[in-house]
Structures are given as C-alpha cells and as structure tokens.
Amino acid sequence: MEEAVRYRRERIDRGIKARSDTIYTLASSRDMLYLLFPRVLPIVALFCLPLLMGGSYWGKVIFYSCIFALLALSWDFMASVGLVSLGQALFFGAGSYVAGGFNHYLKWPMLLTIPAATLGGALICTILLVPVVRLRGVYFSMVTLILPLLFAHLIETLEILGGTHGLLSLTPFPNHWLAVYIAVIAVVIVLFGFRRLINEDFGLVLRGIKDDDRVVMAGGINIYWYKAQAIFISAAVGSFAGALMTHYYQFVGRSAFALDYTILPLAGAVVGGPGSFAGATLGSFILVPLSEALRALGGLRMALYGIILIAALAVLPEGIFHYIERKYHQFERVVKI
C-alpha cells in the first residue's frame, strides 16, 4: 500500500531579530523598509484620502471617520488599563458642550474653545469617573454608560445649555479642508503617540494594572492614580473630538451624549482589533464609511450593519489589524510530514 503523503502548513517568522521591542538588529535597507512600510502607509493614506474625496459628501465621511477614530482610540487607551468604558459619549458630549458653551456665551474663538474643551472636558470627565474607579469590571462600565444619558436628560429637563434646542450658530471652520486636516493630524498624533506611550515605562505600568493590579500595588504603585491619569488622557482625546464636531456642525445639542458615540467607536475598536490602537483606527475607517454606504437602504440599514459586524467578529475574532499584522510578520510554506 502506498503511503499517503501528508502536508502541513508551517508558519515562519520573518527574520528581524528583536531582543525586545526597542532593540532591533537591522541588517539591510530591506529590513528598514520592512519596518517603515507599515508606519508610513497609514500616514500617507490618511493624508491622501481627503484630497481624493474633496469637499463631497464622502469628504465629510472622512471627517466623521476621524472623529470616530479618535473616540475609538480613546476607548482603546482606557481598555489598555483594564477600564472597559461604555461611555465614550460622555467624553464626546463634555467636549462638545464646553466648546459650544464658551463659544456661545463668552464668544471665545475656536482657537480657544477647542483647547479649553479638550482640557476642561477631560477634567470634568475625570472628576466624574474618579469616584468609581475602584469599581471592578462591569460596575465601572455601567456608570460610564449611565452618565451621558443622565447629562442628556438633565439638559432637557432643566433647560440649561440651550435645553432641547441646543446651542445654535456657533463659529464654523473657515473651510472643510482645515477641519478635515486638523482631524487627520489629530488621528495620526494620537495613534502614534498612544502606541509609543504604551510601550514606555508609564505604559507598562498601565498594562500591568490591566494584567494583575495586585502585583502593581505590591510594586508600590498607586493604581487609582494611574487609572485617573489614563482616564484624563483618554477623555482629553474624546473631548477634543467633540469640540471639533461642535464647530463642524456649528451646533451642539443633547445628541452629543447619544449612544451612537459610544457604540460605533466600541464596534470600531473591537472589529479592528483592540489593544493596538491601529486596530481601533482601522476599524473606524471601515465601519463609519460602511454605515454611511448602507444609509441608502433605509430601514434595513441597522439590520445589515449588525450582520456585517457579527460576521466580522466571527471570521476574525482577534480583529482585522491583528490578522494583518500576523500575516505581515509571518510567511507560510507547505511542508511534507
């Protein structure tokens, strides 16, 4: 009887020897290119996309994608300390209303409202969340979910900050290009900034808190202080996104606290692959245009959107980015057993 020849696929790491994340042994310019390509590609893509789309409807979609990417990045940063947020809308809404409020009541120009909203919004959110930072897992998530809904409700019933009508005719961006490129640059800075920060010693401490907070405490580190710092950084990014959107719309209303600003960034981060920041960005740039493209379908839109989301998670549970990353760093060959 002839013996059956069996084959097996073997995965091999592409050979750049790395002792740690920071020490590379670069052998050739090919290795350089191998490392540079994945870093340069997203930057080039981000800068070219708005040019290709111009000021059309799809140009606006690029802007929205950036806004949601910022929110997804902000979600991913909190998740990397082990804080699972269901309230990116809180950050977004806080930034939106701080920017809108200063612009509407005090007539501050955009150059002041956006930084004020970034810092002010972050401060407000941090003060609100610090008391519950000791809550574990789902209890913390519940609080983040409820707070934005509470704010929307307060604004409506107390008729503060414009009540149900919102604050109208705020200062617009001089043109679409300025808005979209501020958003693009922000995404690039936050994406690469977070990727770098999380690998520095400060980031190691944050990741340690997620993995095992008892070991971190035994190492003499006040985990609540570091969680508060992570919330502040994360909220600053979310609030900045809110402030941009406020001036882009020239309007801020209760909808700034809407569940959309929680769900879509969360979906983007999860589909793209959490824990890498690149995944959150990629996911947002897939899901936001997709949800716009499905708009034509009317009522079926949400159903189809849901199906696509579930399918994406079923096929690539690790997230799109982690899949691409793995494929890039490994090659497969078929070997005889």
């Binding site: 740690s20 190691l204 401490v205 003499g220």
Partner: peptide, 12 residues
C-alpha cells in the same frame, strides 16, 4: 526583565 519596570517606576 520588563516585569521589574513596575517596582522600578514606583515613588519609592
């Protein structure tokens, strides 16, 4: 060795 960064980063 990165496991030791946490205590080395402590205020102490």
């Amino acid at each position: 060795f990165k496991n030791l960064i946490v205590p080395l980063y402590s205020p102490r």
